[in-house]
Simulated scan of single mutants.
Amino acid sequence: MRSNPTGRQLRLGTELRKLRERAGLTAAEAGQLLGVKPNQISNMEAGRAGVSAERVRAVACNYDCSDTDLVKALVGMTGDRTRGWWEEYREILPGALLDLAEVEHHAMRLRTAITVHIPGLLQTTDHARELFRQVVPALSPPDIEHRVSFRIKRQAVVFRDSPAPYLALIHEAALRMEFGGPAIARAQLQHLLDMSEQDHITLKVLPFAAGGFPGSGQSIFYSSGPVPQLDTVHLDQSHGPAFLDAEAQLSKYRVLLDRMETKCLPAEKSRDLIRSIAHNL
């Protein structure tokens, strides 16, 4: 029995619960079909109990789920039992940060939209350190360094073999925030330009001239799973990360990001604006 299920394990349990509820079954009825006690169904859906590929297929059959792509994706979530690099931070950083790294690691496509910060996957070490120095309540120097190292290690997802496509929508305001002074800001902007030349990375700037736009009050990270039902939205908030996976929420944020992207400059004009801002620092 798990005492601290990971975000991925919790998500698998959540999706199994959704299947049961769509089938109109109680936990007791589902248990009878599987030949287990109701509390075993509850533990499975809460991520506290491991779920095998065979159990997922049996559940899908009992719940009359005909979505073969979804079932295949859920089966895939049972097979990866390796401990990710983020586990070394489990007693050091909040669990939600580890869940974010796990989501990024398994994503098929990544999209982020942010107003006054540079996306974490595109930050330099010096820029990240300056951001963490502004956290309230203040972090100790060791805690700052733990968070910096964790953020930089997260960036492996954009450097590994066959990386997921990554689209970053960045407001012009974030480009003009001089965290750490002109030298650090200039290096950060150059890093953005360098990263934007990668084939799998698309960087688009939403200029001041675009005026108002949807989602202006929050940073949004959208991770696409193997099927749309397994997508995840991550909202970065001052009290910590929040994860959304309800179908209505996923649909809302897909539309929001699509609309936001239409207000952005094309990729090459975005790079021109970044070069101009860096030149004037």
Rank of each mutant, 00 (worst) to 15 (best):
P214N: 10
L244F: 09
A183R: 14
I184D: 00
E197Y: 05
D161T: 12
L257S: 00
D245F: 10
K252R: 07
T232P: 06
L256F: 00
A242D: 10
I170V: 13
R186L: 03
S223N: 04
C264Q: 06
Q218R: 13
H239N: 08
I184K: 00
P228D: 01
L175Q: 06
L192F: 02
T202G: 07
L256M: 14
E247T: 14
A168D: 07
A242H: 14
G225Q: 11
P228Y: 13
L250I: 12
T262S: 15
P214Y: 06
G240L: 15
T232S: 04
E178V: 02
M260G: 10
A210N: 09
H234W: 15
S223H: 09
T202D: 09
I201R: 08
F243P: 02
I184S: 00
R186P: 01
T262G: 05
A168H: 07
L235I: 14
G240W: 13
L192N: 00
G240F: 12
F213I: 08
A248F: 13
L256S: 01
M195F: 08
K204C: 10
E197K: 11
K252T: 03
D199W: 02
A248H: 15
E178F: 10
K252L: 10
A173I: 05
F179V: 05
V227Q: 04
P228H: 13
I220F: 03
P182E: 00
S224I: 02
Y166S: 00
V233M: 02
V255L: 15
A210L: 01
A209T: 11
D199N: 07
P226H: 09
L189Y: 08
A174K: 08
G217K: 05
A168N: 03
S196D: 07
G217W: 05
L244Y: 02
V233G: 02
F221S: 03
Q237M: 11
P163L: 01
P182G: 00
R160Q: 13
A242K: 14
F213V: 13
Y253R: 00
V233F: 07
F179E: 06
L257R: 10
Y222E: 01
S196P: 15
G212L: 12
V205I: 15
E178I: 03
A246N: 15
L256N: 01
V205T: 12
R259G: 00
Y222C: 00
G181R: 03
M260P: 06
D236E: 13
L256E: 07
P207V: 11
A174V: 12
L203D: 07
R259M: 08
G212Y: 09
V255K: 09
L257C: 04
Q218D: 10
Q237L: 14
L192D: 00
G180H: 09
